[in-house]
Design a protein around this nucleic acid. Structure first.
Lengths: 197, 197
DNA sequence: TAACATACCAGACAGGGTGTTGATTTATTT
DNA sequence: AAATAAATCAACACCCTGTCTGGTATGTTA
């Protein structure tokens, strides 16, 4: 990992790279993007790229890292450290909002050509927080059951996120959070008719 | 797309390729696997590979395609065509079972280095079936709401699947299906204590 | 069994991407 | 203005790709 200089030129260069990268990712998966093509698109020298990143995947990883830092920053005030957050819905809403703020990247990392590794990092981030809430609310469940429930709920939220992005994120983040909360807690039953099964 | 010969030699070669590919995928993501490396691992000539597949992604796609065909075959008797299946849990169980039967591939396509595109195909496969059930059971909901609910539920099931695989698929498929059903229909509330929120 | 078709292989080929280097130019900082 | 840091350019050897030979072995068909 190279160190990130704060020189004005460096920041401009990195911005050019990021812009070119997200543009290209809109039309092709990352594995099809060569450093050469990326640099042509960004209008920089190829050697310059290597001064900032190891390769295309290093670039992708660093962009994701920045986003996760954003997310952590946004969530920090809502999460008393080491403790279960009292308002889980507010946390969820903050997540939706943050991803909306980084939508240029998210539509890619979470999109069809997206990066599974990033999803995993996103999930493990929320894991500890949710588990502490779970074990408080669902004290009867076994740890293994809790694992399965978190796997279901967190992955479900990702699906919700993806759908939300497909729709252009027009629904307010708060409303999405409310929907997520309800789906996790009560499933789809609250909508059910009297129809059988 | 090349035509698949049924010549004995061809089948052996394709099997060698598949075996080498899944082995390699266990230790690196597909974008790191070169045709050269793959052929060395499989012990075949590089030109031979190109006689069967266009590139590594074509190979991956065809393997996934075969698996989806398996899945459709297994599901067909449970799904009266064009109609909503009456026993959704049986369908879910069949899905779990089929993926278990193809676990060598699934641990890869659904694993950490997995392929998002495959997930999408898996999801869209179940989409129409589920939607017909939804619109029957949840007649009050708007189509947009149904979309969101399917996004949540289907993605949640994927998460459950992944967790299941991590655990070595030791839990019976039927039991997993029951858990999935319950999580989708009633959420995690059935476990809840009297704790607040 | 003989003739045929098909799939392998080994090797070579041009083309292109990779990652690095060293010398030079340009911008920033103090 | 001098010192420092970054971007540029050209060139390098290396590896992978995709294709195409001609030769060999293996199946398939009559």
């Amino acid at each position: 990992m190279k160190k990130a200089s704060n020189d004005h030129r460096s920041r401009v260069t990195r911005m050019l790279i990021r812009r070119a990268f997200t543009q290209l990712l809109g039309s092709m998966p990352p594995e099809r993007i060569s450093v050469k093509l990326l640099c042509e698109q960004a209008g920089i020298n190829r050697g310059t790229f290597y001064a900032h990143y190891d390769d295309v995947y290093d670039l992708l990883g660093q962009l994701e890292e920045e986003m996760l830092e954003d997310l952590k920053r946004a969530l920090a005030p809502l999460m008393p450290m080491g403790e279960a957050p009292d308002d889980l819905e507010a946390v969820t809403a903050a997540v939706f909002q943050c991803l909306k703020d980084n939508s240029d990247l998210c539509t890619v990392t979470l999109g069809d050509y997206g990066d599974k590794a990033f999803l995993n990092r996103l999930l493990s981030l929320g894991r500890s927080a949710c588990m502490s809430v779970y074990s408080r609310c669902f004290s009867q469940a076994t740890p293994q059951q809790l694992d399965y429930y978190y796997a279901f709920a967190s992955s479900g939220c990702i699906g919700l996120l993806r759908k939300w992005m497909e729709e252009g994120m027009s629904t307010p983040a708060g409303e999405m959070a409310r929907m997520a909360e309800r789906l996790m807690r009560t499933g789809m039953g609250f909508l059910q008719d009297d129809a059988p099964k």
